[in-house]
Structures are given as C-alpha cells and as structure tokens.
Amino acid sequence: MSTHETLEPSAATGDETALHTLPIRDPKRLAHWLSYAVGAVVLVLAFRFVVLNPHWDWPTIGSWLFSRRVVSGLLNTILITVVSTAAGLVLGLVVAALRLSGFAVLRAMAAVYVWIIRATPGLVLILFVYFLAALMPTLSLGLPFADPFFEVPTNQVISQFSAAVIGLSAYLGAYSAEIFRGGVLSVHQGQFEASHSLGLSAWQTYTKVVGPQIIRVITPSLANEVVTMFKNTSLVSVIGYVELLTTVQLVYSQNFKTIPMLTVAVIWYLVLTSLAMLGQSRLEKRFGRGFNRRVVKSAVSADTVGQEERHD
C-alpha cells in the first residue's frame, strides 16, 4: 500500500520534516481503469446493436420521423399532455387542499377520490369516461330529485379528445394530490409559526414562505408524473384517439415495419422527456435558492468560509 512506500524511507532516515511538504494524490486504482474498459465495451456493443444493425432499418426511421402523419400524431400527444397536465395539476391542488382542510366531510371526499383513482388502472379510467353515456345517458346540472337547470346528452360532451383529457387529468389529479400533500407535510412547522407571528395571511404564507419550499421538494416527483403522462397518452389509443403511438401502430399494421416505426415513436418520446427534464432542472435551480451551495459574493467571504456550516 502507498502508505508504506511513503512512510518507510523517511522512517528509515529519520527525516520527518520532509513528509509534510509532499503533495497528496489519490492513487489510480485498477477498478478505476476497469470502469473505463467496461464503458468502452458497452459503447461499442451499443453502437453495433443500434447503428450498424441493418434490421433496425434507419432509412425507414429517417423517412417517417418527420412525416406529416407522425408529426400530426406527435402534436396530438403534446396537446393532450399539456391540457391534461394543466387540468390534472389544478385538480391535484384542489384535492390536496381538501385533504388538508379543517372540514371532515371534505377530507373524506378527497380521500375517497384518491383511493378510487389509485385503485383504477388508467386504461379502465379512460374507457369508463368514454363510455359514460352507458351509465349516464344525459349530463344535467341541478339538485338530486329535482328538475335540472341544464341538461345535455352525454355523447355530445364526450368526444375521444375530451374523454382522453378527463381520464388522464383525473388520474394525474389523484397522484399529484398526494405529492402536493406530501410537500406540505414536509415543511417544518416552524415556518408556519413564523408566518403566523409576522401576521401573514394563509395566502401570503403559501405564496411567499412555504410555497417555494414545497415546490423545491416536490419537483422531482412531479416531473416523474409529467413524463409518465407523455407515455400514458398512448393509453387513449383504446378509444381510437390518434396520438403518436397510435399513429405508428396504424402505419406498421400496413407496412409491417414494426421495429422501425416503434423506434420513431421512442425517439420522439426521448425528445419530449428531455424537454421535461430540462424544465425540471431549471425549476430545481430556481427553487434551490438558499439550499444549494453557492459562492458568497460579499467582501467578507473569507471570514464566512471559516464559519461552521448549518443546514436545517
């Protein structure tokens, strides 16, 4: 071991004064070099498997990637994702607020909602919404057992698009509600007490004090849900809504180029996921203020470096 190498000569000569001047270096270990070798091998194998593999049929992939049909499916995927995510997050905020409210009835209603949605597969949920007319031929607004103020046939409201959006946002609503609730519970009680003592209203407390702390904590989980949403949109193929995955499925049912067409979809999902992750890292940076390490700009920084660091 290296300690022997450096200790013994000086111990032998009795020259301890020279030891403290020697520079300190981490030895490059065998495992270190081995990790490079493993990386290189994996890279070569992957290159051979994906790029040099003629069965992958890159020319076909290239010809379909920006085709009108695929791009139109992609735009539908983006549209459903954006609308369902927005509606789902708003719903999630409301459900989380109900679950944390002081009214037992509202808490129970929100808990039952989360329970049922979590128990129902997304696919089933979308089918239920799409075939809602079978359960409820007309949608009406009014009090139970009284003439409704307003009535409309269910099938006029439920299109493939609206069924997809309602199903997916109901799904995200339940999951994000739990994430929001977890975020609120993660905030130190002292933050609420400090806000109370400053005379801040509940709204001010949430927007100025605890909100940013909650966003910081929940961003990774929420980003997970949004990325899942991109792919969950493919569930709506069961009700015949033509989004990205349905598009490529329709194409390969005709040209039998299954793998290349699925690869086209995967490439676009990769792009969308990268965008979502970019958004995530920007959010994390923005709301990491006061938590992330940073270079202290003031003139007294040398003094601060010596201070004991505290992280609560």
Binding site: E193, A194, S197, G199, V209, R216, G290, F291, D312
Partner: peptide, 20 residues
C-alpha cells in the same frame, strides 16, 4: 392577525425562511 403583529416572536429554532 392585527393583534398578533403587536408581538415580536423569537423562536428557539430561529425559523428563518431558508429561501430568503
């Protein structure tokens, strides 16, 4: 809230707002 503002409270655990 108006009544509370008459008091300035200092806590054992400081309770400063970390992002400010």
């Amino acid at each position: 809230r108006r009544q509370v503002v008459n008091f300035g409270m200092v806590f054992q655990s400081f309770n400063l707002i970390p992002q400010l």
